[in-house]
Design a protein around this nucleic acid. Structure first.
Lengths: 195, 195
DNA sequence: ACCGTAACACTAACGGTTAGCTTTTCAAAA
DNA sequence: TTTTGAAAAGCTAACCGTTAGTGTTACGGT
């Protein structure tokens, strides 16, 4: 179902990839702030306007892989097994995402992001957008008839868990600890019928 | 105790105030994005460089009043009565801050912020800085010997409460609802000795 | 073979921000 | 009072991310 990719789409994808690779290479080698867009474009042998045709901003060049982050969280909620409780499903997905971003291969990029304020800000803005769409997914669940505020709250808490766990010394333990807190918060907002 | 303010400091403060007032007036009248820094400077009758000598960025012009937000949260923790539990003290302060920012007088400015993506982003970045310093204040409390992760988690939750409550239809009710959740989360992270 | 259009290039500009340097203005030492 | 040091403000010119305007090329469907 990947469709017969024509030469056109292949070339486009290649250009995009070349830009992203070049940018990341230069950023890692010499630092994000000291490498300009004009230089990235020159090194990738494309026009500056082409860079912005493929990426919405300079920061977006660094977060090329994380496109599906948003969808994965929402789907963890909407596609979970019938009658499966919300929080454990959320916890599982957050843990997977944390593992993905603390993997050994991602270390240099993580370091680049952590050491560049502009990138940290950009990432946090992304996360907040993710929280909003997660809140919508939670609110849309017919099995959970609670307030909009509670949905948005839990969504933000989950994003907080992800962010904090990524920075923690022991990410796995951090996810466990924070989700114990989230579980308690959720039970207060939406008391289960079992008790 | 305001000290004998010399002419110099008075003039400096006056310049700063004039810039901030002019900027806010123009932004409210014609929109944030359509008013340039050069125009603000001209209207305030100062040089562009002077604007940036007083404010770190264009966005900072809008958040002139909120300087002490950060301190107030930290102090609500450090200066609370001996043996007073953490969460109620935090709740009280957050509620006060929410009231302050949803007051009638602040309505036009809030509307300006909500309607300008650049300002929303900037505000969120501020909040995260506030969360960090709040986390430090919580971690420094000798009565609460728990993990760094728990401190940072609660700090972010409190900031989330502020943000969500400011946007909610009924801010007071939102603070109540969210802090019930936070209370539960805190008790799991730091079980009180009473039970 | 032809045409519509998506992808890309080029130039020039806009707006936020900063560096470098000069001028003004206050405060306190001399 | 006069001198002097420094903070505050000004001016110019630029840097950098980003966008608009305008072509040009190369592909894909007819």
């Amino acid at each position: 179902m990947t469709a017969p990719t024509g030469r056109r789409e292949r070339k486009k994808a290649a250009t995009r990839q070349k830009i992203a690779d070049t940018a990341l290479r230069l950023f890692l080698a010499r630092g994000y702030d000291t490498v300009g867009i004009r230089e990235v474009a020159a090194e990738a042998d494309v026009a500056v306007t082409t860079v912005f045709a493929h990426f919405a901003s300079k920061e977006a060049l660094v977060f090329e892989q994380d496109q599906d982050f948003e969808q994965r969280l929402a789907r963890a909620v909407t596609d979970r097994a019938p009658h499966e409780p919300l929080i454990p499903a959320l916890r599982r997905e957050v843990l997977a995402l944390v593992h993905h971003c603390t993997a050994d291969g991602a270390a240099p990029v993580r370091q680049l992001i952590e050491g560049t304020p502009a990138l940290r800000e950009y990432e946090e803005s992304m996360r907040l957008r993710h929280a909003e769409s997660l809140a919508v997914a939670i609110a849309a669940d017919p099995e959970l008839p609670q307030s909009t505020t509670a949905c948005r709250t839990i969504a933000r808490f989950a994003i907080d868990a992800y962010t904090l766990a990524c920075e923690a010394a022991d990410p796995q333990a951090a996810v466990d600890e924070i989700f114990r807190m989230i579980e308690a918060a959720w039970e207060v907002a939406c008391p289960p019928p079992h008790a």
